[in-house]
Design a protein around this nucleic acid. Structure first.
Lengths: 225, 225
DNA sequence: AGTCCCTTTTATTAATTTTTCATTAAGTCT
DNA sequence: AGACTTAATGAAAAATTAATAAAAGGGACT
């Protein structure tokens, strides 16, 4: 995963910390969004769909552990990295945090260097497991389970349909030319007519019930929710 | 993996710390070996073959980072968990540690609670691919006893059937492609026709009497209760 | 040797996926 | 607007793939 495509959501009620972390992450090339309390964190998480969520334990509205618990219940955030910021004081919360399903925690006061190091370490760890689950808005595409979910509802796709959707959704917004689609999904040698793609696109659109594939006439298709 | 079979090597030059950690780990049931400097750590690691190595950064002979670098070069320790103990002072070493391939680090002074929580968290992460009793809903699959139970009722499966079911159930929801199944259950060299898998699947379905194996046409099978 | 059971193969059928084709609709360009 | 290109649609043929049933091969055990 390119660092420029890594999205991080930071939730903390102290504006100073928010700014320091944002500054450092952006300097490294991460895409950053911030939230100032638990509710906002959940809301932004759903909208922004980050790869990493940094949660302060002590926050208004909902604390970090609560936010984590709520998010982990949603399939879209099953594989999202979660990092807690904790005050050295409360040990118990730290432990509860890890048990709740956070991937790591870091103690305040935060040193930017250590923070960045942790973040990159987390991403490195993620890369090893090679979780290629795509998750945009309410749509989850899990190639390992061969499963497509939209707002929690399972949708059955046939093999080619799945592969096609997965390809398009792997780079939302990007237009895939027909030749590109053919070689990626069907393979370079296989020869099938152009209508075949259309028909598969149609089936995907039908089954998903959402208009998430846009036709770019004369060029190809792109995925956008 | 049973906690009683988990072996931990601790390397630190401060006898007090060594004792505290050893005491806490043993209390939890871990098998513990200690070393007091870098060279001894490497030597013991090779002999003892631990699942987790806890390394102090500051040690005589070789420091923790050096030990880590050396061990990681050996294939036997490619997947061994490594946890660093660091003094808050030296940030730079911390960072270098993570880059060297440690799985995590923990700051001194060490709180036993946090330490144990980290350790169990590390093992949990590792554990996901371990051999153990599978138990989903009313279904129990015990590879050691070679036993399958559904709602308390014993079900007799033949060897291949059992292995196949166990493989699928080891990662519920995940699709296993036919080649994967063949190489896992039959072995890479053995050549059997594709229908063989089908037949076994059918027998499992019959014997279990529950629809827990889903066919993903053109791909493979997955377990889901 | 014969029986039992596990395993694998084979042949047949059923089901689903994939592709093609003809037609209609929608966009592009001058 | 009209000519032309490209995609959406509906339906059906072609191809792939799995379920099923039935039987053959192979060990282990009596």
């Amino acid at each position: 995963m390119d660092i420029r495509s890594r999205k991080v959501l930071i939730a903390d009620d102290e504006p100073d910390i928010l700014e320091i972390l944002r500054y450092n992450l952006q300097k490294e090339g991460y895409h950053v969004v911030t939230a100032k309390d638990g509710d906002e964190a959940i809301e932004k998480a759903k909208m922004f769909n980050p790869d990493l969520i940094v949660l302060d334990i002590m926050m208004p509205k909902k604390n970090g552990v609560e936010v984590c618990e709520i998010l982990r219940l949603l399939p879209a955030f099953k594989n999202t990295l979660i990092l807690f910021l904790t005050a050295l004081s409360d040990e118990n919360t730290q432990i509860r945090g890890l048990e709740t399903g956070a991937d790591d925690y870091i103690n305040k006061p935060i040193s930017p260097k250590v923070f960045l190091s942790k973040v990159s370490s987390l991403f490195r760890r993620l890369n090893k497991t090679e979780t290629k689950v795509i998750s945009v808005d309410g749509l989850v595409i899990d190639p390992e389970k061969f499963l497509v979910q939209y707002h929690g509802k399972d949708i059955m796709l046939a093999k080619k349909e799945f592969e096609l959707l997965y390809l398009l959704a792997s780079k939302p917004g990007r237009v895939f030319v027909r030749n590109e689609i053919l070689s990626q999904v069907w393979g370079a040698e296989v020869i099938v007519g152009d209508r075949t793609i259309d028909v598969h696109i149609r089936k995907i659109r039908q089954k998903l019930g959402v208009d998430c594939i846009t036709t770019v006439k004369g060029v190809g298709y792109k995925f956008e929710l």
